[in-house]
Every structure is written in C-alpha cells, then in structure tokens.
Design a protein around this nucleic acid. Sequence first.
DNA 1: TCCATATAGATGCAATTGCATCGACAGGGA
DNA 2: TCCCTGTCGATGCAATTGCATCTATATGGA
Lengths: 151, 151
Amino acid sequence: MTKKSPSPEAIAAWARLVRVSRQLVERTEDALKASGLPPLAWYDVLHELAEAGEGGLRPFELIDRVLLAQYSVSRLLARLEVDGLVEKLPVSDDGRGQTVRITAGGREMRRRIWAIYGASIAELMGDRLSAKELEMLGALLGRLRDPPVSE
Amino acid sequence: MTKKSPSPEAIAAWARLVRVSRQLVERTEDALKASGLPPLAWYDVLHELAEAGEGGLRPFELIDRVLLAQYSVSRLLARLEVDGLVEKLPVSDDGRGQTVRITAGGREMRRRIWAIYGASIAELMGDRLSAKELEMLGALLGRLRDPPVSE
DNA sequence: TCCATATAGATGCAATTGCATCGACAGGGA
DNA sequence: TCCCTGTCGATGCAATTGCATCTATATGGA
C-alpha cells in the first residue's frame, strides 16, 4: 500500500491551522489566567450545562460535546462541584449514573469567563477579518470536520 | 473601559477553528502512536534542525520556531539526545550555550514520522479541500497570526 | 433465575507539564 | 577589576494528564 503525499498547499494550510489555533488559544488562556479565572475547559463545560438547562446533562453526554476524555470530564466535574459551580444529582432510572446541573454560581462564573473570552475572540478574530471572511473561514473549516458531514 | 463583544460570525469561526484543529491534531497523534512513533513535537524539532543543516540551532532559536516553552524544549532535547536523534555541541563564543544538531538517526526518524504525518495531512486536508480552497484557508488563517503581519 | 457481557463513572499510579528558581556565563558601567 | 543585571539552559517540586483498571449497575440470553 502506497502512502499518500500531501500537496504543498495542504501542508501550508495545515501548518497555519495548527500554529494559529495554538497561538489564539494560548493567548486566551493567558488572558484568563491574568484575570484569575479558570481555563477554557471550564467554560466549555459550563456553557454546555447552561445550554442544557434545568434538566442538566449526564457526564457521558458532556464527553462528546466538549471533546474531552472520559477521565478528564470526571475530574473536571469533581473540581467544578468542589467550587460549587455544578451539582450532581442521582438519576432515577440508572443507578450507575448521575445528572450534572449548573448552579447559580456556575452561571455567574460562566459570565465572568465570557467577559474575557468573548473580548479575546473579538480582538483576535473579529478585528482581523470581516464578517464575510469569517463566514468563509467557518465554511472551509466545516469541511474539515471529522467525520465528514454532508451539510 | 468597555469590553468588546464578538460577532456571531467571529464566535462561529472561532469554535470551528479550535475544534477542528484539535480533532485533526488528535487524529494525527493517534496515527503516530499506533505506529509506535513519537509525538508531533518531536517532528517539529527534528524538522527545524534538519532545515538548519550542519550548523545546527541554539535551543533558544528553537523556542520561537516551535512555539514551545523554554523548559519543554530543554526536556524534549534531552530525550532526543538520549535516543541519539540529536547531538549537543558546546559553542565556542558563548560558554552558557550549546548548539544542537540533528544526527543521521534523527533524519531517519524524521522520515519515518513524515510517512505517517504527511499521509495524515493528505487525508485530513488534501482530500477535503481543493488547492484553491486550501490557499484561501491558508490566507485567511495568515491574517489571524500573532502579531499581525503586513504580508 | 443466573450468568456473561456491556456501560457509567471514579481512581491508583506513572509520566508529563508548568511554575519557579537555580547555576553558569555574558556584558556593561563605575 | 568588580559588581550588577541580563540571558542561557537545567531542574526540584507540585499539579495535571494519560493509561489502565476498578466498582457498580444494567441488559440480554440460556
């Protein structure tokens, strides 16, 4: 079996993609740290839980949404619980599981993180590309999703 | 001071950027692991050293090129040296420093990693976007680089 | 019912990472 | 020459991550 070779354009785009994304995330994490706020992963989870509403989410549902390993989610939730940002409720029809729900404190924390996170996105993306360009970028990136989707 | 709010387009593009890049890197790392090869960071360093040629590079030069923390580079180089992939040479005009040079074994390892890495790029990017689209993507991402460049 | 297998989530332990700091040398000014 | 400050690279230690596995419960078939 012969291995495929990437085109120069593919290599260049890949390099930019990986590099730029790392830079942007790092700058945002630094901004959060500088404000004494927790990392982006906390926001992601709080965001999903806020979207989910009162019903909350099962940890395994969170896993596919936030793209983290099972043990990462398990430990992250434990930390969030210690800080009172989420609460774990036993679930009636499955003795193994639990439902995780965001608390008022969690919503407040989410807002505080977003103040920094949102500003970072605005500065790093919104200020540099027009709405049209951002849409184009989003569309191109969408084609790279895994697994491929038909849209 | 009022914090800026990102546009919906900026948020969507950001989310895709971060998510897609993580997925692609993860899939590539998995492919390397499955072949018993070291992580991408090893490739990056070997690549830079190969480009640098016989003269090698100082560790601090490597740092800006590969976008890693100083201590990460220090430890990564130590591992590469143990595996015989690079060699450290004292540098005459600066008693603090050293020059790092890739070895024959290092070049060979670089080739082996590229066989997987390149195939992964071809599959994940080349197969999904045309050359024109890849150029477009690269150009848009270039505008997000930090610090902003004039091109 | 009983057992085999599968799934949910937690966790012990080793490896890695991040932070802070260190030791060594460089460079410049008094 | 002697400090003082800055840079290079390494490293001790604590925190985090990854891997493997564990416990507990669920589910389906004999």
